[in-house]
Design a protein around this nucleic acid. Sequence first.
DNA 1: TTTCTTATTGCAAATAGTTGCAACAAGGAG
DNA 2: CTCCTTGTTGCAACTATTTGCAATAAGAAA
Lengths: 142, 142
Amino acid sequence: MSCEKLLRDYLRKRGLRLTHQRELVLSVLHELEAPATAEEIFARVRTRSQNVDISTVYRTLELFQELRLVSGFDAGDGIRRYEHLGVAAPHHHLVCQTCGKSLSVPLAELASLTAYLAETYHFTTDPGGLTLSGVCATCQKA
Amino acid sequence: MSCEKLLRDYLRKRGLRLTHQRELVLSVLHELEAPATAEEIFARVRTRSQNVDISTVYRTLELFQELRLVSGFDAGDGIRRYEHLGVAAPHHHLVCQTCGKSLSVPLAELASLTAYLAETYHFTTDPGGLTLSGVCATCQKA
DNA sequence: TTTCTTATTGCAAATAGTTGCAACAAGGAG
DNA sequence: CTCCTTGTTGCAACTATTTGCAATAAGAAA
C-alpha cells in the first residue's frame, strides 16, 4: 500500500479531509533524501504551488507526525527536522548534538528499555520512537 | 560544596566571569519546586533585579546546562522547562507528552542502554541525561 | 448537479527563543 | 587604588514556530 493510500485511509478514519496541500507536502517528503527543516520542505512545496502558507506546512507536518507518516526531531540546533517514514516502520533516532546527524535504531533493538520503563515506572514510551541525544563516532574524535 | 561554590569553580576553570545576573538566576533556580519555563524564571529574577534581560536569562540557562547545574527539556508543548540539578547527579527524564510531568530515572538504571549504543553504534549519549517521550500512568488511564 | 456542513487554509499577529553589537562591568596586573 | 582586557549584558532585531479568525474548499447528501 502506497503512502497516498495510507494518508487517504488515515484521514478518512479520523473524519479529516484530503487536501491538495496535504498531498503536496507528502509528495515533497517523498523526494527528501535526508531529514529536512520545515523551511526546506516549504521551499520545495512553493516550487509546485505558489499559494501554500508556511503555517499550513507546520500544521501538516504535525498531523503527519500523529499519523506516523513523518518523524520529527531537534538536531541540537533548535531547528526541528522531519523525516519521511512512509510505509517504513517508525524507529528511534540517535541525534548527534554536534553535527546534527541522525542514526536510526529499529524499535525492536530497544524493546527491553521500553519494557523496563513500563514495568518500573508505568511509563509508555512514544510508539513513534524516541530521540536520544549524544555525540556520534565522528564527532567524538574531533 | 554548595551550588555557589560549584558555579564559581566551573566559571573560573573556563575563564568565565561570575556576574550578579548569574548568581541571581542560580538563586532563583534554588527556589524552584518544579521545573519552570524561562519566562517563569525571568519573572522571579525581575522581582529581585529590575534590569535583567530575558536574553540574559536564556544565555545563563544555556550555560548552566553546559555546566550540568541545570537540566532542560521540552514537556511536549514546545516550551522548554528547566530543572535545578545543583549538587544532585544528572538523571534521565521521562516526559509525559500529555500532562507534561517529568519522572526522574537515575543514570545508572539505563547504563546498559548507553553501553549498548556505544558498542553497537559508537554513539555516546548525553552525559547530562536523556529525555524520553511518552505517556505516564495517569494519562494512560484517561 | 447543487447545496450544505465543517475541516482547513492563508494571513497577520503572537510566542518562545536567538543573535549582533555597542556599552558595561568583572577581575587581573601593576 | 587605577588601568586595561575582554567576557557579558541590554536592547532591538531576528528566526522558528504557533495561533486566532474570516474566507475557502473538500466531500457528503439530496
